[in-house]
């Protein structure tokens, strides 16, 4: 019989234990935390962030980084509103067309991102940051700095229509997470991400077209950012050029807190899901337990460090840069 408490097992389950620990802590201080309604609130806050975090997980697993999410989410959210309004302004009138159009737009932005990174041989950090700025700039240009609103009740059902107490958008996110897991675990592309992240030279020498895998990774991330853009509109009923603000910090923190290693090859979708939940539980919990606002940022930083320490297998690498 295998030992249950192996080191591997401890590391695998650490993020989940951190999450449960936090929930117990917050509930002990304020029992109101542990209620279905509050979980629904956390889920709504986490939904778009999870889509962004899953997108960037594919890139981080490859050992690259993608910082284009704020620009991409902002631009796709704004474009979604424009296409939605131009095609009738209600789902019933045919505005559903906006959904595939925007997913395609997200893929396109990701493609450009990947091509700039791979073909021009610019580090992913710089290439994606630049593409993000271009995205925000384009969103400002399109909106002229104004807010675009969507009032269609059918579309807003993503937020207002609840099944078992959770809004529809939460189920959309669950389905998307399952799709991401399927790509990661049951497709060649998913396994290739790990091959590239685990050792790029080795993958290349084994005949893998590393550049193609990288570009496809960015395309995939772009699609998930587009989903986040659409959910952001569903959540707030509006889009503006800054709709993607803060997603960079939230998503990368969540990915790392969940136990995905920034140097690539380690972790996956479920780590990210738990990581996003940890960060959102912390954000919600700090208000619910009544932590003074001037302590919240510091506490978030502290908890993130603790979570990373507990959930990353640092013994397998010789040094951290």
């Amino acid at each position: 019989m295998k030992r249950l408490m192996t080191r591997e097992n401890a590391i695998r389950w650490a993020p989940l234990l951190v999450l449960i620990g936090l929930m117990i802590l917050f509930t002990a201080i304020n029992p109101a935390f542990l209620s279905q309604r509050n979980f629904a609130r956390i889920a709504i806050a986490a939904a778009p962030a999870l889509m962004v975090a899953i997108g960037v997980t594919f890139i981080i697993v490859m050992g690259s980084i993608d910082l284009s999410m704020e620009g991409t989410v902002g631009l796709t959210a704004v474009l979604f509103c424009f296409v939605f309004l131009a095609t009738g302004g209600t789902l019933a009138a045919g505005a559903w067309v906006a959904v595939p159009v925007i997913l395609l737009a997200g893929a396109l932005i990701g493609l450009v991102n990947g091509l700039v990174h791979v073909k021009l041989r610019i580090p992913s950090f710089m290439a994606s940051l630049a593409i993000g700025f271009v995205g925000t700039g384009a969103a400002v240009l399109i909106t002229g700095g104004d807010i675009v609103k969507i009032d269609d009740d059918t579309f807003r059902a993503l937020l207002t229509w609840r099944i078992a107490g959770f809004p529809l958008m939460v189920y959309v996110v669950i389905v998307m997470a399952l799709i991401a897991w399927f790509i990661q675990s049951h497709t060649t592309l998913g396994r290739n991400f790990y091959a590239v992240g685990g050792g790029e030279e080795l993958a290349h020498a084994s005949g893998l077209n590393v550049r193609r895998v990288r570009i496809l990774g960015f395309v995939l991330a772009g699609v998930f950012y587009a989903v986040a853009g659409i959910l952001q509109v569903a959540k707030l009923g509006q889009a503006e050029s800054v709709s993607g603000a803060n997603f960079m910090f939230i998503s990368i923190t969540s990915v790392v807190v969940g136990g995905v290693a920034l140097w690539g090859g380690i972790g996956g979708i479920w780590n990210t899901v738990v990581g996003v939940l940890i960060v959102n539980v912390i954000n919600n919990g700090m208000v619910v337990i009544g932590l003074p606002d001037y302590l919240q940022d510091g506490m978030l930083g502290l908890l993130v460090i603790v979570a990373v320490v507990l959930s990353t297998d640092r013994r397998s690498i010789s040094f951290v840069k």
Binding site: F33, I42, I44, L236, E240, N284
Partner: peptide, 25 residues
């Protein structure tokens, strides 16, 4: 009941308000 910064931001305000609803109902 409470006064906390939402940083002039729509998204942050929505999340803060949700947390307030849990705390104060």
């Amino acid at each position: 009941l409470d006064a906390q910064p939402a940083d002039w931001d729509t998204t942050k305000a929505a999340e803060l308000m949700a947390s307030f609803l849990t705390k104060y109902g």
